[in-house]
Design a binder for these strands. Sequence first.
DNA 1: CACCCTCGAGTTCC
DNA 2: CTCGAGGGTG
Length: 678
Amino acid sequence: MDAAKEKSRLEELIKIIQEHNHRYHVLDMPIISDAEYDQLVAELLQLESKYPDLITPDSPSQRVGGGVSDRFRKVQHPQPILSLANGFDAEDLRSWLDRIAKLNPKVAASDFTVEPKLDGLTVVLHYRNGIFVQGATRGNGEIGEEVTRNLKTLQSLPLSIPVFQDGPAPPEYLVVRGEVFIDLEDFEELNRKQEELGEKVYQTPRNTAAGALRNLDSAVTAARPLRLLVYTIVTSEGSEVPESQLESLELLRAYGFSVPENIVHCLDIEEVVEACEAWGERRISLPYEIDGAVVKINNIAMADSLGIVGKDPRGAIAYKFPAQEVTTELLDIGVNVGRTGVLTPYAILDAVEVGGVIVRQATLHNFDFIQDKDIRIHDRVRIKRAGDVIPYVKGPILEVRPESAVTYSPPDVCPACEEKVATIEGEVAWYCVNPACPAQLVRNLEHYVSRTTLDIVGLGIKLVEQLVEQGLVKDVADLYRLKREDLIELEGFGDKKADNLLAAIESSKQRPLSRFIFALGIRGVGEVVGAELATFYCSMDRLAATTLEELIEIEGIGPNIAQAVVDWFALPANQNILAKLKQSGMWPELSGDSGAEGLPQPLEGLSFVVTGTLAGFSRKAVKDYIQERGGKVISAVSSKTSYLVSGESPGSKFAKAEQLGIPVLDEAGLRELAGEPL
DNA sequence: CACCCTCGAGTTCC
DNA sequence: CTCGAGGGTG
């Protein structure tokens, strides 16, 4: 090719590429593949490097920043997309203000906005004359990836800015910043579908959103439930320029963007602190994940005047919540023995902070769970604190699985007694079936004395272990045969403590029959079924003589529980225990009046779920209160729940209730409903 | 038979 | 809170 031909080809290329750009970005009707496009650009670049004189300012090579990605074109942001400095508590927020007030005393009297900090991907959107022309990921803040076509599949992204008669005129050139993310509910729904199809499930909403937005096939992006919220005007030319962050948000809304809701306007730093903490409490009831709150000085000019330190503008700060999800190394897997003999594996973790506490252990539920999630020792695993308390392992991070990772094989003997383990047909759990297993005995005793059963105060885990170790107690009935002399021998015991313990054990004979049945630890018989059996049989003698057929008749008891009950009473070891208990005078009967009969039953037919802390009630007291008045207390919110009783710092039940539209009561509301005079 | 709801059991940290 | 299982229902 001679020079003249090359030069005309170069000019031709510019026109061709511009045409394709137009089709791609504006008309959304590309007629060539991305690869072909990249080839054209590559050819152009090659020619331009040969004839640099011919590079025009409007050449596509200039427009795309000169680089051609193998996946996406890189674009330079009109101005760097800055990150934010982080704060973690109220003190960090106050000292941030103190610092900047020294630079400009006027900020001390400034007002602020507090917005939720969405956990998604930042995108930068360009509109020319009201038409969406380009969208890019944040990238490194200077250069991002151009994902215009994918962004166009988002329902919540306006392709053009509507013009209203009395609304603001759209700017000639507008650049905004927003966040792309997936609602938690949509995410779960997506994973449910994936599971049904036998496809892989996604790990986090954030990663899924990132993957979808950067997918080469826009159809895939379109199929994901991505949402967009816009919260900053980066550039606005040829129209009104907002003076404050609040005005910006209003303007963005008028332009047709979805903006984050419930943005708090604060007049001083203490209000800011309050608002940040409120977002922390609200976090769990939001439809999407947030990892903090963003505090901005409302006046944009004032914020800008403070300048930038490193990559962080001084006029704003991110208040970060403690991470709810972290990753750490799984050092080993241990196995616990439950009171029913169930073997439960647990993860021994490299200690890590999650949501403000150090976590070293987390349950792995059962051996199938380990296999299903393909969890291996030395894997890096994702840990989450469910609700706010109990940590659990979500799964391994396969991408960083080390060579040293080893698959785990469940033990074939009980870790406590070394008897062979057994499985039950159709059940996931593995069992130690040795009736003399010391671990089971300890757990069984713990259950027998625990607060929810016979409530023997002063008899805790440590003491139970001690009594078993010393051979003083070989079954629950032995508790009633403990002698003062034996107890005084024990470490840390004196006359007084021994007497108190004996008195506590003695008082357990006064507990209701229902609690006693629950305390025995029959598989499948918990608090509710125990109460059911107590009201049906009224005495231990009658219960012990029951039959399978009779049990099945009882509402709430099916063949499995019935069989477990019959089996329990048939076991000679248990018959022996019962005989000893009866002999000791531990043989409750259902008393005619339970004390609550006389109360009116205003809550009859209603079911309640309790969450959070109530001021005037303990957890147990509120339960009794509701039950005494005819209401039912259940553990999980469902569509059949009548009311959620919510106190201070409610858990995730609150979100669930809101979602299902279940009415929420506070303590006063409950009392009122129960007909108490106010 | 497929669902939904409820119950039981084990669970972490301070 | 989680998961699994049992029980009831459409």
